[in-house]
Design a protein around this nucleic acid. Structure first.
Length: 561
RNA sequence: UGGGGGAUCGUCUAACGGUAGGACAGCGGACUCUGACUCCGCCAGUCUAGGUUCGAAUCCUAGUCCCCCAGCCA
């Protein structure tokens, strides 16, 4: 495990306080948690919070955390999602060991418990069509009314429920409902549906079932079966807790789990709702679930975000019960912090401008030593080729520099990193007045970048040798949305940032980068952190910008400095 | 005149009746062969009004504002 985010001490939050108290009071001897995704989409950074919390807590208390798929709705769930979720949880750095479960593992037991409730007079089969059931549920301010089917005999209920299972009825014809209280202030207690008829093939149980338990009937019971002690979920399930408890208390549950709710993670300039993410994918607004602009774990991985950065970020955000929106800057900070320590430095010129050193001998190539990672001396140095013709970053030159611009400009001397001090002598332009090339001279006495007379230059530029550099495509990502709360205006697609992806095709990179492994993070000096994309091949290099370096110059420039 | 939650610097989060602290962001400076990193400094907060108390973010009372719930979704 990498070093923790500064200032973010591992886990002190109300959840851990509760567990401490439970242990101190002897209510629990061990801690069992679970991460219970529904396999109907890809995991995203918000899930990372739940994953880190559940697995983290289990780890800290020497307990265990189960991965359990909440696969109770076959009309929405797919094997593809099951596979991706397992992959992503593992990638994030967590291990469920042998504890991989599915709510569908418990369908038979759940069915038996449903009959148990019927026999106890606490559940009944209702023939009301969905619309009528809704109408009779009442409203937020008015109580509901009892269904005319509420007082069927036990035998009739049992018979009907069995025939539901046997497939005698079409979808929606009947449901099994808990008999609780149609006048309850908490709408979840107004005879909630426990089972519905769904003639659909399930990714795991195939065609065995045509009735499926609802979330409420499956979740808490699955927890009890698995011996989960602390069932952690998000705030919107708070209202379900009385039902969760009611079911456990009215069933011969093998253990007594407790549900606790925490606030889900929200990020500004980001959407995390499954519906919105699915829509982005289905409508082709992004290239897929792993489009590097997406907040999914698959996308972050492709973009080059290390799992440790996500873990540190989640830790730094904390766990509380108040709704909140975290600034994405905090996430980017965690990414930079992690990458700064671990990534090798390379030179890459995103928008090349040719620089010719007129007094440098033609045909001569020098090998210069470049530090791989100043944060990690053990990473050593590499050799880079220097010659008469180079490329520098176009934005590192200004013909008429503003006062705060201290990079290259006519007659000004700067350092080429690890190379020499060069002075711009002439600006070559095309007919349209575009700067095409810079003619410079170098000071041979400044080999390696140091002047023997001790004179200083303000700027150090990155560069590549024109004959050695290899072409690459570079993809620059900007926020997918340009509104802090996408969709607040009614249509989240209207808030899409048209410049969320910028593709640079003329870039030239240091030859060593041709060997960069996919997903391996590198820092392009003075630019940011990058990694080879999935699309990258030895013949056609493609790099993603994971995140840019902090850039006080860009900031000053933007504010008119 | 339903039920359930929540309000602490711009943002996220600590405090468990005893100096309101940290992180991010912002601003300023030092350092620098990355306008990066690092370091230093500054800015900035207890929703309101009462009450209890030697002492209140914390306890009490009354308000205000925000979030969630009327799927046979999870």
């Amino acid at each position: 495990m990498t070093k923790e985010t500064a200032g973010a001490q591992p886990g002190r939050d109300f959840i851990r306080d509760i567990i401490d108290a439970d242990i101190a009071a002897g209510r629990n001897t061990d801690v069992v948690t679970r991460f219970p995704p529904e396999p109907n989409g890809y995991l995203h950074i918000g899930h990372a919070k739940a994953i880190c919390l559940n697995f983290g807590v289990a780890q800290e208390y020497g307990g265990r955390c189960h991965l359990r798929f909440d696969d109770t709705n076959p009309t929405k769930e797919e094997q593809e999602y099951i596979d991706s979720i397992k992959h992503d949880v593992r990638w994030l750095g967590f291990d469920w060991g042998p504890h991989l479960y599915y709510a569908s593992d418990y369908f038979e037991q759940l069915y038996d418990w449903a009959e148990h409730l019927i026999r106890a007079g606490k559940a009944y089969v209702d023939d009301l069509p969905a619309e009528e059931m809704r109408a009779m549920r009442g409203s937020l301010t008015e109580p509901g009314r009892n269904s005319p089917y509420r007082d069927r005999s036990l035998d009739e209920n049992l018979d009907l429920f069995r025939r539901m299972r046997d497939g005698e009825f079409p979808n929606g014809a009947r449901v099994l409902r808990a008999k609780i209280d149609m006048a309850a202030g908490n709408i979840n207690l107004r005879d909630p549906v426990l089972y519905r008829i769904l003639h659909a093939e399930h990714p795991r149980t195939g065609k065995k079932w045509c009735i499926y338990p609802t979330y409420d009937f499956a979740h808490g019971q699955s927890d009890a079966i698995e011996g989960v002690t602390h069932s952690l979920c998000t705030l919107e399930f708070e209202d379900h807790r009385p039902l969760y408890d009611w079911l456990i208390e009215n069933l011969p549950a093998p253990s007594r789990p407790r549900q606790y709710e925490f606030a889900r993670l929200n990020l500004n300039f980001t959407v995390l709702s499954k519906r919105f993410l699915t829509e982005l994918v289905r409508e082709g607004r992004v290239s897929g679930w792993d489009d590097p602009r997406m907040p999914t774990l698959a996308a972050l991985r492709r973009r080059g975000v290390p799992p440790a950065a996500i873990r540190n970020f989640v830790r730094s955000v904390g766990v509380a019960r108040a709704n909140s929106v975290v600034d994405v800057a905090m996430f980017e900070h965690a990414v930079r912090e992690c990458l700064n320590k671990t990534s090798q430095r390379r030179m890459a010129v995103l928008r090349p401008l040719k620089l010719v050193i007129e007094n440098y001998p033609i045909g001569v190539i020098e090998e210069l030593a470049a530090v791989n990672n100043p944060e990690d001396p053990a990473s050593g140095t590499r050799r880079i080729a220097f010659g008469r013709e180079l490329y520098v970053e176009a934005e590192d030159f200004m013909e008429h520099p503003s006062p705060s611009f201290y990079r290259l400009s006519p007659a000004r001397e700067v350092r080429l990193r690890y190379g020499y001090l060069v002075t711009c002598r002439e600006v070559v332009k095309d007919a349209a007045g575009e700067v095409m090339e810079l003619i410079c001279t170098y000071d041979p006495a400044t080999y390696g970048g140091n002047a023997p007379d001790g004179r200083k230059v303000r700027a150090t530029l990155h560069w590549v040798s024109a004959v050695h550099a290899v072409p690459a495509e570079i993809r620059l990502y900007n926020p997918l949305f340009n509104a802090p709360d996408p969709g607040a205006g009614g249509d989240f697609l209207a808030d899409l940032n048209p410049r969320s992806l910028e593709i640079l095709t003329q870039s030239r990179v240091e030859p060593a980068l041709a060997a960069a492994g996919q997903g391996e993070a590198v820092q392009f000096e003075r630019q940011g952190y990058f990694c080879a994309d999935l699309d990258s091949t030895p013949k056609r290099l493609v790099f993603n910008r994971t995140v840019g370096l902090r850039d006080s110059w860009a900031k000053a420039r933007a504010s008119g400095g």
